[in-house]
């Protein structure tokens, strides 16, 4: 079956690679690029653990083919931190208890990052709406919402 040479920028690094047509974007990130921060959870497009940014927009990488991302820029959770300095979202998720088991966290971080890029000062309702495509079975969401609120405040203060 068909193979494709694709050019893809992941966390500001450019890659040219050959992928079979059926390769999921989630698998390209995890298996080919060893960026295992992006998780595969439900396998049915429901949980959002595989969420990444594609050209700045939040998508589910388990519902995307790698060939569809040819020529695109991808951001994963590995790209959030600046060297040893965690992103304010990552700091605030730790401080507010926005995670317990942590499996859903990369997806939530990317969803929150997409929101704050568009809307630096969201209301609680806007945060809940923006996180609507992500499931967490541990936290009950309250602390996740608080984490995003606090990160927004911190980023606006700087």
């Amino acid at each position: 079956m068909s193979k494709h040479t694709i050019s893809i920028t992941v966390n500001r690094q450019r890659h040219q690679m050959e992928v079979p047509a059926r390769r999921l974007l989630a698998d390209l990130l995890r298996e080919d690029l060893h960026l295992t921060g992006t998780k595969r959870g439900c396998e049915t497009g429901t949980c959002g653990a595989c969420s990444v940014l594609l050209n700045g927009e939040l998508v589910k990488s388990c519902l995307s083919l790698a060939v569809q991302a040819d020529g695109c820029a991808i951001s994963t959770v590995e790209g959030l931190a600046n060297g040893d300095h965690l992103h304010p979202l990552q700091e605030c998720f730790m401080q507010c208890g926005g995670l317990q088991c942590g499996y859903c966290t990369p997806g939530f971080l990317m969803a929150a990052a997409a929101l704050l890029a568009q809307n630096p000062n969201p209301t609680e309702a806007e945060i809940r709406k923006a996180l609507n495509g992500n499931l967490c079975r541990c936290t009950g969401y309250t602390q996740i919402v608080e984490s995003v609120m606090r990160a927004a405040q911190r980023m606006n203060a700087n």
Binding site: S51, E57, L58, L63, N132, G133
Partner: peptide
């Protein structure tokens, strides 16, 4: 409709 990810895709 659906959720943010699906709306973007």
């Amino acid at each position: 409709l659906a959720n943010p990810q699906v709306r973007n895709q």
